[in-house]
Amino acid sequence: MKREIIHFNSIDSTNDYAKSIALEKEEGTIVVAEQQLSGKGRMGRVWTSPSGKGIYFSIILKPELDPTKVARVTLIGAAAVHLALKDINICSQIKWPNDIVINGKKVCGILTEMNCELNKINYIIMGIGINVNLDEDDIPEELMDKATSLKIVSGEDINRNKLLDLVLNHFKRLYEPFKTNYILNETIKICRENSALIGKDIQVIQNDKFKIGKAIDINEDGELVVEFDTGIETIFSGEVSVRGLNGYV
């Protein structure tokens, strides 16, 4: 997978720009911005993106996969970020399927969007936002109990270029076997062993309905396995929101 980087000082959304050029660009093209004016997360949520303090980027992917398997790409992104943070001696957990948390607070979010036909993927855009060098006053007051930054937890500034390179290298290594042979073993192992949810009671929100269960595993297809009073169910990413009973996780 080639790596072409398109850099912006400021842009509305790296995901939106990546979608506008995806059909003409090769797989592996990366859109990076110092600041997003309209950064977004899953389910239409706003992603705060102050200038020069975070990592905000989107990758254009074009795997020859069944569209139903696209959600697994999000897990690859989460595993890549976790490994990159480990490389700089920061311990984190993965809140299935798309968040990285430290001490129970979100430090990274992943938004995966797809353009496809019935059984053909035209492109996938995977956007990643990492709160790197944000200070406490950069985080909106209403998110103080849910969000943090690498600088806040480590007490020091982080080299954003180095961290981005680490994330991209880990992503490529994990993505290539998935793309060619649908091999996801290492990614699942990373997500399972570093899960913020497994073993905890959680809320599963689907169609505005709440169910309480216990997360017990992540299966080989990347689905969350939850034990409810009515029995064990597998949860597909993208169709639900998952929250902890006590706070964010």
Rank of each mutant, 00 (worst) to 15 (best):
K2Y: 01
R3Q: 11
I6C: 05
F8T: 07
F8K: 07
S13N: 01
V31F: 04
Q35C: 14
K40I: 06
G44M: 09
V46R: 07
G52I: 11
G54V: 06
I55G: 05
Y56T: 06
S58A: 10
I59E: 04
T74D: 05
A79S: 12
A80G: 09
H82W: 03
K86L: 11
I90Y: 04
S92V: 03
I100F: 13
V107Y: 00
I110Y: 02
I110Q: 05
E117I: 10
I121Y: 04
I130R: 02
V132S: 07
D135N: 15
E136F: 12
E136K: 15
I139W: 00
P140L: 13
S154W: 03
D157I: 11
I158G: 07
N159H: 12
N161E: 15
V167Y: 01
L174H: 04
Y175P: 09
I183G: 00
I188T: 06
I188N: 03
K189V: 01
I190T: 09
C191N: 14
R192P: 09
A196Y: 04
I198L: 12
I205D: 03
D208K: 15
K209P: 00
K214F: 07
I216T: 14
D217C: 08
N219H: 07
G222L: 00
E223R: 14
L224G: 09
V225C: 05
V225R: 01
F228V: 08
T234Y: 08
V242M: 10
